[in-house]
Design a protein around this nucleic acid. Structure first.
Lengths: 147, 147
DNA sequence: TTTTTTTAAATTGTAAACAATTAAATTTAA
DNA sequence: TTAAATTTAATTGTTTACAATTTAAAAAAA
């Protein structure tokens, strides 16, 4: 029977390795993203826009689980790098639509080389257990997303 | 055969769910930790000290994969809350030893109730797959920690 | 021993995260 | 239709992260 105090050991935590792994893998993105001049959270936004351009801030936020307090300054930074435009919607003036600029669209082809670079860090993992692991993490996100 | 552009879809990323899960589970800690008046990274430091008091800043940093740029201000906050003392080492004056105060030690008993509260968020997971998942995440940390 | 290198914290500056609040537009309800 | 509630971004303030640099002390090399 585990004691309460055992559960307080770092090694027994589930959250800590998750927190560490998240930071480490974001770290792995740093070098390849530096060539594009963007950060990992900015890259996430760009990926969303490459998939579907013109989304509103809150729509991006829903996908990334981020609020305007985080996104507004981040989007302003992307705008100052001329990768996106922030356009007040005409149908609903509360909304701000995020549109890729030509430069923002062009960046996609460079970005396509990044995922395989990240995979290199994980080449000690076989494909199967990686796919399984990904689905487990996704399951965890689902679990934590419905309270 | 997957195209490069497919790999740029958010849903195909391994890092994103990891990043999201990490933030969500830290979020789950927020409420219980609020009762103790500390944040999740501060809680990690306290856990380390409850296990072994008097560690130097860099020793804490090695365990958490954090540098002095992050830890110094965090530790100053813990000190201002009277949970720790920062003491310049006498044997090696470069080092600062972090010692729990009486209040810091006392907090442990309250903190012992936290892990089970977090587990409640995960009660849809059976014990076995949770243990397995934890070891997978740990394996990932190991992988990413040796380049 | 003197010089060089390494190590440990702290500092500076930038970019997230996120709570809480605000302001404006839109919806819903009265 | 008017008033109340909701939605959307933005803003303010605090705390992490982390790169890069600085300062001082200790260890290693000359």
């Amino acid at each position: 029977m585990a004691k309460d105090s055992d559960l307080l050991l770092l090694e027994n935590q589930i959250c800590f390795p998750l927190y560490a792994a998240s930071r480490m893998i974001i770290q792995a993105y740093r070098e390849p993203l530096e060539e594009l001049g963007i950060t990992y959270p900015q890259y996430l936004v760009m990926m969303i826009l490459w998939e579907k351009d013109g989304l509103a801030v809150n729509e991006i936020g829903k996908k990334l689980f981020l609020d305007s307090g985080t996104l507004t300054p981040l989007l302003k930074r992307l705008e100052s790098h001329n990768l996106i435009k922030r356009v007040r919607s005409e149908e609903d003036e509360r909304k701000v639509e995020i549109q890729l600029t030509f430069q923002g669209k062009s960046m996609k082809s460079k970005a396509e080389k990044i995922p395989s670079k990240i995979m290199e860090c994980l080449n000690s993992w076989d494909q199967k257990s990686l796919v399984n692991f990904k689905s487990e993490v996704n399951k965890l996100v689902e679990t934590l997303n419905q309270p």
